[in-house]
Design a protein around this nucleic acid. Structure first.
Length: 211
DNA sequence: CGGTTTTGACCCGCGC
DNA sequence: GCGCGGGTCAAAACCG
């Protein structure tokens, strides 16, 4: 990848407006993924909390935060993502979207957040590494790279200080594969002025809590 | 029809 | 001990 397009600038105070702090840090660490697969609704039982043994695997998934200037939240990096959640952030008026790679073998997650201060800045946080080839051809993606500024900021905590250090370098040929992003002008309804989500999706859950 | 998105509910860890 | 905030799930709606 042509590193010439990338701007290896580490986040300065100027680049991070309010509330951005060290978001990408991983405070808890003790198994925060794998987790609640067994909540399995059903019944009454809450036996899930009884055993904490499930947290054996201390996976060290590296997380990377990228600040990109783009008008679209969804930056197509060549992989297929499926949104599985969206939450409103306290400091930002824009919500944060959670995506997950559709590949079964690939558990890569990514979350996209837009800064309320600078709507042009989109923070994309990747978690994990892809273990499969890109399906979408990155045809003229370098062309897109040239028209967007990418600030590379690698925030890592103690956990991955050992091996993850290398991946931190964008464009250095790390194992992180290509985290390149390219604009997608195929935006569905074109969110015009803001992120006004229509009333798509389920109106209201009739049941209450089935979990 | 299948896959994806939407979105409220739920869960968990941390802070107070 | 309670509350807040962040992260995930899963049912329903929607789109190709």
């Amino acid at each position: 990848m042509a590193a010439s397009h990338l701007l290896p600038n580490f986040q300065e105070n100027t680049s991070r407006p309010l509330g951005f702090k060290e978001e990408v840090d991983v405070p808890r660490s003790s198994g925060d993924n794998i987790p609640r697969m067994e909540r399995t609704f059903a019944g009454s039982g809450n036996e899930v909390k009884t055993g904490k043994k499930k947290v054996e695997r201390k996976d060290r998934k590296p997380r990377f935060a990228f600040q990109t200037r783009s008008q679209v939240d969804i930056l197509d990096d060549g992989y297929r993502w499926r949104k599985y959640g969206q939450k409103a952030v306290k400091n930002n008026k824009y919500p944060r979207s959670y995506y997950r790679c559709t590949n079964q073998d690939c558990n890569v997650k990514k979350q996209v957040q837009r800064l309320s201060k600078d709507e042009g800045v989109v923070v994309t946080t990747y978690e994990g590494t892809h273990t499969h080839p890109i399906e979408r051809s990155t045809d003229n993606f370098e062309h897109i790279l040239s028209q967007m500024q990418i600030y590379t900021g690698c925030y890592r905590r103690r956990e991955d200080d050992a091996g993850a250090g290398a991946v931190c370098a964008v464009g250095a040929g790390g194992s992180v594969a290509k985290e390149e992003k390219k604009k997608k002008e195929k935006e569905k309804g074109d969110d015009a002025g803001g992120y006004v989500q229509g009333e798509r999706g389920r109106k209201k859950k009739m049941g209450k809590k089935r979990r």
